[in-house]
């Protein structure tokens, strides 16, 4: 089927079908959240920025959450060796990106001037790194469990 969405969808047909379901469900939830907010806005006027942010957050969290929990990300991880190897690969990837981001930040923005700026800088890196690892780990664990059951 010809669609520009095909560019963002995996080529494997099972993954493709699941992803299309997640995106469609997310879109319906987004629409419902907009309807709810239009109604709420009649009684309690909302801040425009917040009103725009909430539906986007609902869509992104829903689609990401469903993708992570579905166990379809790591389709070939079915042995303990491959599982451990993948954890190392994830750690290396996240570590590398965190280091590159930190270097680029220091080069472009410059060194943080005071303690608050240092805390903001390191805090952001830590939160992004830990959250990224945590979501990747859950996705890997779910994929591994699902793949083991299919052997």
């Amino acid at each position: 089927m010809k669609s520009w969405l095909a560019f963002f969808i995996p080529s494997d047909e099972y993954k493709e079908k699941r992803m299309l379901y997640f995106l469609s469900e997310g879109a319906i939830l987004l629409l419902l959240s907009l309807v709810v907010m239009v109604i709420c806005n009649q009684f309690y006027p909302m801040n425009t920025g917040l009103a725009l942010l909430i539906p986007i957050a609902i869509f992104l969290f829903y689609v990401m959450g469903r993708y992570i929990l579905s166990g379809i990300e790591y389709t070939d991880i079915a042995t303990e060796t491959a599982y451990k190897k993948e954890i190392k690969r994830i750690l290396n990837k996240i570590g590398g990106i965190v280091v590159i981001y930190a270097l680029l930040y220091l080069l472009i923005v410059g060194f943080p001037a005071n303690n608050t700026e240092w805390i903001d800088f390191i805090g952001l890196l830590l939160v992004v790194g830990v959250l990224w690892f945590f979501t990747s780990f859950i996705s890997l664990k779910r994929s591994y469990k699902k793949n083991r059951e299919l052997l």
Partner: peptide, 15 residues
């Protein structure tokens, strides 16, 4: 041109 998971699901009759 599929994934191992898809083949497993087909064999188990889950897809």
């Amino acid at each position: 041109a599929a994934t191992r998971q898809t083949i497993g699901l087909i064999e188990k009759g889950e897809y």
